[in-house]
């Protein structure tokens, strides 16, 4: 993959990324570019390495080999303090929202501002209320706790938290998992609105094809720890890749074999 795409530079570059757990290789020399201001969605089945790839980028897992560059700066091997500074560029929406249950919603949203950027609590609260409004939640929700929110509200709060520090790159880990189709569409719309308005770069991982088609400008497919296809979302259906075709059609017949009791 080249590091320039048309006139735009790659914001995030992964090269030769490998990660194993014991004898099981999860990422196998994975290469991927995420271009500035694009919304790239990585699709793939369960256990193909999507979440591991995201955790390696975020520094939550250490890859065995390879390179991760953000704006040309190598992330692997950075000291923790240097990495924490670079983390300001990132926002992350976790699959299960991962809201802190010991603090109210507004403080969850303002957490990165208060603790990561040392912004005054009152000012951070005002920003948090604005961000909650941006995801369609009113100020009263700010005083509730995680346990008092529905699944959809939790995702919205997590989205508000992910964008509160105005990151340059936002990661979405299965943003619509566990939501009904209508709420899933609401979250998809919010992701599009936020990434468009803030001109941020988005990297999402999902196996929800409806969500992928809606939020992606470009799609990549991961299989057995490698990116086996990537291209604009418009070319997804005309791909001649049998793995992609099987995955988007959801057929059990094809080159992707699921391990079941019968076989």
């Amino acid at each position: 993959m080249s590091t320039t795409h048309g006139k735009k530079e790659a914001k995030l570059i992964l090269r030769g990324l490998s990660k194993s757990f014991g004898p099981k290789s999860v990422l196998d020399e994975l290469d991927l570019d995420v271009i500035e201001s694009e919304s790239l969605v990585v699709i793939g089945g369960s256990g193909t390495g999507k979440s591991v790839m995201l955790k390696c980028i975020l520094g939550l897992l250490n890859p065995e080999s390879g390179s991760i560059k953000v704006d040309g700066k190598e992330m692997i091997g950075l000291r923790r303090s240097e990495r924490e500074k670079l983390m300001h560029k990132f926002g992350m929406l976790f699959q299960g929202a991962a809201l802190f249950d010991s603090i109210p919603v507004w403080e969850n949203v303002a957490f990165g501002l208060i603790h990561g950027q040392n912004i005054d609590r009152k000012e951070a609260k005002d920003i948090a209320i604005d961000k909650l409004a941006a995801v369609g939640l009113n100020a009263d929700v700010g005083n509730l706790y995680h346990s008092e929110l529905s699944g959809g509200m939790q995702k919205r709060v997590a989205l508000a938290r992910a964008i509160a520090t105005e990151p340059e790159i936002i990661f979405f880990d299965e943003p619509t998992t566990g939501l009904d189709p209508i709420m899933a569409d609401v979250i998809n719309e919010l992701i599009i609105k936020i990434t468009t308005e803030t001109k941020s770069t988005a990297l999402s991982i999902t196996h929800d094809m409806a969500s992928a088609r809606k939020i992606a400008t470009r799609i990549a497919m991961i299989y057995e720890g490698k990116i086996i296809w990537h291209g604009p979302v418009e070319k997804l259906d005309s791909s001649d890749n049998p793995y992609v075709n099987q995955f988007i059609s959801g057929s059990s017949d094809g080159p992707i074999k699921m391990l079941t009791r019968a076989n």
Binding site: L58, L60, M87, F94, A98, L99, G116
Partner: peptide, 17 residues
């Protein structure tokens, strides 16, 4: 519980050790 619900990972992504 914070570990298994990814709250500790969330702390790291919010620049908090």
């Amino acid at each position: 519980t914070m570990r298994v619900t990814e709250q500790i990972d969330a702390l790291s992504t919010l620049s908090t050790n």
